[in-house]
Write a protein that binds this DNA or RNA. Structure first.
Lengths: 417, 417
DNA sequence: GCGGTTTTGTTCACGACTAGAGCATAAACT
DNA sequence: AGTTTATGCTCTAGTCGTGAACAAAACCGC
């Protein structure tokens, strides 16, 4: 995001800007629109697009509709262009997808697991290696969303699954030593809530919002602040641990080791507890959904605690919008009044005057996966990322036509936007 | 901070980079060092420096010491160069200073006030107008630090002083209508804690820290997160309201209108309350200092509450460093053990392993003033800011030698760094 | 169906910028 | 006094974006 200082970097910088614009709009804007929006001369845009097409980063197709004048083109993903692999690892299953520039997602596999680091990550590592093998140099990176705090280097703790300092990159790469395929690279490992928030900021309800708060209600509660489209990350990782502040009523010990965490009062585990059911260990998704649908008292109690915490965070950070994902939207729909009423006494007077909107996510349970994808593209759509791509595509490679037509199953090929 | 896209912007961008570097190092680096650090060719640096000197933005002086080879120059503030006015408005007095590029501060006036908006701001407005008059076109902006939340446009609420939506820019400009002097421009109005944190990030203990937490303990408690040298600001203003989250024990109503604010358990008002003395209204600075120095029980109780809240914020944001200003350093010095012990049970296990450093500010009570100055320079050291400066310095002005030698009193001309 | 209109893509001369090399300069070292 | 070393200055070369002129490809009205 920083600026160019030489004329050479200028070109690289504008290449990034153009690709970024194509990606962010989902490959919908025409070349002439892009030229105007990016304040480029038509000639410059010509050269840029030609260069990017040459590098197999972009591919132009005729625009479907036009009013008058010479028809324009729509730059979109190149058939041999960059692809990101994205995974959402939940407490009980993981989902693996392939994403191209512009954000089109193709889910490749969904597989349940037993909740242990080995049981979850080893088969995932194999699946990733297989897809990397199939896609070859096109893979620009892998993003992995996980339901717990992530330290730098990919060490993950999910207290209620008994994961302590699990080295995710190492487990994923375990079988990759003797492979002949392309090197795996270091995956972008991140917290699911932070990723969901990123997705919301790029393609959801936090788009063009300067300061937004995103809360993800699953078994646990995750929360993160988005500022200028980026999550406010901690020093040691992706952060997003609003769930572990003592914002509500509870003073009981949390699995994380602290006392009185807000998250213990709000997530699916709290719902199960309210209903007098067994909870913990990442089990009971169906029962929790049943409680959410039928036990009004448990839902209201949970919503009240959610409201208290939101009020505290609104006081501190003054977001324009609060978005909810996971079980959050349903919680808000069923007990929104209780949520707001419980928060009100904890709001500063000046916040009460103009409280933020509270909205359900536009992306449903897909947020974490999409955010993992976006984070991979964030690293790719930089001067350095594009240079790497160019290095891996030497000119002589253009002569060897060893490409097979990439036809793979698209069980769920919906467009992300 | 964003990048250039045309060759013209390139030059402007490099001018900004060079000035920024000079400012950030306090005008200590030599030209050859700057050339290396900014990765410029010697020829480019030559042209840049010459241009900036021409525009009266920079002035080179011979470097004091050199090892060998041709001696180099040190670019520093120009004698007719840009000047920022900065004010720290506390509950009982304000302090006005003049700051030049590089961060040298000259305190101009210190004046107590009665705590009312009129009583505090009207004399300040007059003083500002007088100094703007004296300095003329050299004034690039005014920064005003205030001890309460600031909404966009400069509306300030200081609940315990009964300030509700006080329009600070309007009050400051009240007498400026019929003035002949230069236009006041809109002052940069901000929260004192946020400004203190900015100063800490530029010239204090948060320098080069990616994620830091700054807490300012005055009558009230302010707290703000610094990410990449910038405060995490709310949607409606400068934010920095960690003091109004229910992080500690209190559930009593706070003057802000919410219940259970952490700040009510920590600031000077809390100290006075612990000691059984009258509190509120911005009165009792001496008594509070007396309690701080002598009443160990009150100090310990306050420190414990401070520790509890810090633990919650560390869980959520994982800062590398926590810095304290105002009464914070003394509190930490006198009862650091109690502070840490009180926080420990509220830390997540993974945070407990590597807790952040807690440090007193390097700038003492000067932080808010310095931060106000930095914020003015932040707006100035941009492509747009420098263009404005150039526009106000047309070529024909260089012929008219109507400048008087600027000799003014420097009652406290210490160097900020 | 045909020429005029409108919008877009392409090409090229031009100005602005930085890099880098060569030269001049000014001090310290021998 | 001559050498060494680091820096400042000047000039050429190469790259970039701009903007104007021109070509292309659709639509519009008659």
């Amino acid at each position: 995001m920083n600026g160019a200082t030489t004329s050479g970097e200028l070109r690289a910088h504008n290449r990034v800007r153009l690709l970024r614009a194509v990606h962010d709009c989902g490959a919908t804007r025409t070349r002439s629109q892009l030229t105007r929006d990016l304040r480029l001369a038509r000639g410059t845009a010509s050269v840029l697009v030609a260069g990017l097409a040459e590098d197999e980063l972009l591919h132009e197709e005729p625009a479907r509709e036009h009013v008058r004048g010479r028809p324009t083109q729509v730059p979109g993903p190149h058939p041999y262009g960059p692809v990101a692999l994205a995974v959402d690892v939940r407490e009980d299953a993981w989902e693996l997808a392939e994403c191209e520039l512009g954000g089109r997602v193709t889910v490749l596999e969904v597989r349940p697991h037993d909740g242990t680091p080995e049981g979850a990550l080893r088969p995932l590592g194999e699946a990733l290696a297989a897809h990397r093998d199939r896609l070859g140099h096109r893979v620009i990176g892998t993003g992995v969303a996980l339901a717990g705090p992530v330290r730098h280097g990919g060490l993950v703790d999910i207290a209620h699954l008994n994961w302590h300092g699990v080295d995710v990159p190492a487990l994923l790469a375990a079988d990759d030593r003797d492979e002949a395929g392309p090197p795996a690279g270091t995956p972008v490992v991140g917290n699911d809530t932070a990723f969901a928030a990123v997705a919301e900021a790029r393609r959801g309800r936090l788009r063009d919002v300067r300061v937004g708060l995103h809360l993800h209600v699953d078994f646990d509660l995750g929360g993160v602040l988005m500022v200028d489209g980026r999550p406010v990350a901690g020093a040691g990782g992706v952060g997003a641990e609003f769930g572990h502040m003592p914002l509500a009523e509870s003073r009981r010990p949390c699995a994380c080791g602290a006392l009185g965490c807000w998250g213990a009062d709000v997530g699916a585990n709290a719902l199960l507890r309210h209903a007098g059911l067994a909870h913990g260990g990442g089990r009971g998704r169906e029962q929790a959904e049943h409680v959410l649908a039928n036990d009004a008292a448990a839902v209201e109690a949970t919503a009240r605690m959610l409201g208290r915490g939101i009020a505290a965070l609104v006081n501190a950070h003054d977001p324009e919008v609060v978005t909810l994902s996971g079980h959050g939207p349903e919680l808000f729909e069923r007990a929104g009044a209780a949520l707001l009423a419980a928060g009100e006494p904890y709001l500063m007077a000046i916040r009460r005057e103009r409280p933020p909107r509270i909205e359900g996510s536009a992306l449903g349970w897909r947020g974490a996966l999409l955010g993992a994808m976006e984070s991979v593209f964030d690293a790719f759509l930089t001067v350095e990322g594009l240079e790497l791509w160019r290095d891996n595509h030497p000119d002589q490679a253009r002569d060897t036509p060893d490409r097979q037509s990439v036809t793979h199953s698209t069980p769920d090929g919906d467009r992300a936007l």
